[in-house]
């Protein structure tokens, strides 16, 4: 029995660690899309900005906490920059500009080796409390830390969306001409939502770097954006609880497919493509048939018209 637990515990820890990071990442997207109706197809860019800023600042001698804060702030700042030209226009424009930005950012991370070490990636940066915590317990510690952060983010967002502020965000999602006619500065609210969502993604980026101990541009492929979309939609758009559950489901599923990998006659590039096809199909089918998600709160998003 004990041996059994010893075997399964590290595995479980890994799933939970990754899930908590992705839950936070997706909570940022849920604020933007689920509550405000913004389409951000480049969410991964903010994950990357958070991760790179944190580790690069730390490697050049700044304290860890300061580096993380800078990472969050810079991610939020880029949300602001992208929001300025797009958020007064139709929702399509934000989608285009964010997806373009995430691709351009990946090129920059790959090519500006003087800054980012290109495809070699970065490792050897500090992890929180690494001197104090014994190595064999480190992941458990990290898990506790991440769950605590997730808790803080989750409850803050819940508070946010159940406030008059959240009411304005939801009204923008529904039909922005109504809050406009009532005197709410829709553009400013959209911008704030994008900034907060991006900053949260930046935080998730720092966490991802701590977990992986190594980042390179390939850590931040476009697919990560769509993983977040799947998480949000799976769990029920506009439900923070659903988003956390969605993250857990997706990563349990992904680690499940690792076992299957040995039994299917796919080559390695095919396995990656296969996974993306599944993600794409899931996105299409969920939006077509179950836009309220599997755990959507009542029929909040199911009513058409």
């Amino acid at each position: 029995m004990i041996e059994y637990i010893d075997m399964i515990l590290p595995y479980l820890t890994t799933i939970l660690l990754v899930s908590s990071i992705y839950a936070i990442f997706a909570l940022g997207l849920n604020l933007e899309w689920g509550f405000t109706g913004l389409i951000n197809f480049g969410h991964v860019a903010f994950l990357a900005i958070g991760a790179y800023t944190t580790v690069m600042l730390n490697m050049s001698g700044y304290s860890l906490i300061l580096s993380v804060i800078a990472g969050i702030a810079l991610a939020g700042f880029f949300g602001f920059l992208l929001g300025i030209p797009t958020l007064r226009l139709r929702e399509d424009y934000l989608a285009i500009v964010t997806i373009g930005f995430s691709e351009v950012l990946r090129f920059i991370l790959l090519n500006e080796e003087w800054l980012t070490r290109g495809s070699f990636g970065i490792h050897g940066f500090e992890r929180p409390f690494q001197d104090v915590i014994p190595y064999q317990y480190y992941n458990i510690f990290l898990l506790l830390l991440f769950v605590a952060i997730l808790g803080i983010i989750y409850f803050s967002l819940e508070k946010l969306i159940h406030s008059p502020y959240g009411r304005v965000l939801k009204s923008i999602r529904e039909d922005e001409s109504v809050p406009s006619a009532l005197g709410k500065n829709v553009f400013s609210y959209k911008l704030q939502s994008l900034i907060i969502g991006s900053a949260i993604a930046g935080l998730a980026g720092a966490m991802l770097a701590f977990y992986l101990q190594y980042i390179n541009p390939f850590t931040f492929k476009p697919i990560e954006t769509f993983n977040a979309w799947i998480i949000v939609i799976l769990g029920g758009t506009a439900s923070n609880k659903g988003t956390v559950v969605g993250a857990l489901i997706l990563w349990t599923f992904f680690s499940g497919t690792r076992f299957i990998e040995e039994y299917v006659p796919f080559e390695s590039h095919q396995m990656g493509a296969f996974r993306m096809i599944i993600i794409g199909l899931l996105l299409m089918l969920l939006m077509m048939h179950k836009p309220e998600g599997i755990f959507g709160e009542r029929e909040e998003l199911a009513l058409s018209d």
Binding site: I39, F41, E91, D92, A95, I223, F226, W229, I233, M276, I277, I279, G280, L281, L282, L283, M284, M287, M288
Partner: peptide
Amino acid sequence: IIISIGLALV
């Protein structure tokens, strides 16, 4: 829009 990006991935 979201369906179309899903289709793009597929």
